[in-house]
Design a protein around this nucleic acid. Sequence first.
DNA 1: ACCTTAAAGCAAATACGTTGCTTCAAGTGC
DNA 2: GCACTTGAAGCAACGTATTTGCTTTAAGGT
Lengths: 188, 188
Amino acid sequence: MSRKPMVRPGGRSARVQASVHAAVHELEAEVGREALTVPLVATRAGVTPSTIYRRWGDLQELLSDVAVERLRPETAPEDKGSLRSDLEAWAEQFLEEMAAPTGRAYIRDALLGDPDGSNAGQCSAYAAEQIAVILDRAVGREETTPDAETVLDRVVAPMMYRILFRPDGLDTAYARQLVAGLVGSTDH
Amino acid sequence: MSRKPMVRPGGRSARVQASVHAAVHELEAEVGREALTVPLVATRAGVTPSTIYRRWGDLQELLSDVAVERLRPETAPEDKGSLRSDLEAWAEQFLEEMAAPTGRAYIRDALLGDPDGSNAGQCSAYAAEQIAVILDRAVGREETTPDAETVLDRVVAPMMYRILFRPDGLDTAYARQLVAGLVGSTDH
DNA sequence: ACCTTAAAGCAAATACGTTGCTTCAAGTGC
DNA sequence: GCACTTGAAGCAACGTATTTGCTTTAAGGT
């Protein structure tokens, strides 16, 4: 983490962190991401601005932390019975979530307020974990599977590239097409 | 463009734009990107801060414009005699430039101050142009060629993904490997 | 040469970000 | 359980950045 929420695990610091994160969520919904400022968040959270500046450095790093928290997947990928359909389902859901305006905003925030790259690395790690689960499952079924790096290169990277650099005309068919290109489009 | 340098093409506005961009370049070199502020740039450029705020909105959007300008390729990709070697040479150079700290900073700036995605889209368009040149040349040689979209998905996107999300351990071998995966690694 | 009108300059008011110092309370040793 | 240590939060004052209304300049059109 940028300026380490390695807070004392329980107690006042934890309460401050929680209320600041909650304030960011509330205010994003109420006034929009553009209108967020540190003093505004601080007031809502019931802390002084200097507390936020000292713990997070600036608004971008705070938003980056919040974004990573929100990008963490909540559930294991669904088991659809085959590698191909597992990957398709996961990729479609990933693309839907990430390509939505709110998802793109989180990705950008995670990337941008992140001088050392650790938050961005965390995002990639989340995707890699999900993929590893899918691949393990496929190995258990004795399917032939690509390795995780290949899935990142062939499925995740193209989706991310388009989300960030060419946000127009993205739909779930694109996700399926990428998966098909990787596992072969013969069966279904 | 974020706040449109669709300036009156010649005259004072153009001079202001040029001197502001020049000031950014000079000051990046002199004091470093972190220390840039709007008033500092304005003073160096010989304009008032409010001029910059009104034209660009904020420092991030200004830096985003400057970054895109710098990411524009200056020369057509070199002709190495075959599709494979043209792509390899281009991808290696692209990766070297973009993965370097200064290149990553430009990419981040281009993405950052870019609410509507048009600057990011421009970056992708630059890459697409270069690739189109390479593919046209290959067609002229009567080689079989993938289409440009496929090259973006299979070569550009994975490089960008790693640059942004997993910046460690990138080297030109990775670029070659991606090209090999696309055009087949049989000949050379 | 004279209009029209974006865009730049100026200056005042506001808001943001930084910092030294003080106060609070979580975790530690007695 | 009590007091000690220490990291973190509060407070307040300062410097800088940002916003804004109004004025002035000069580019492009007639």
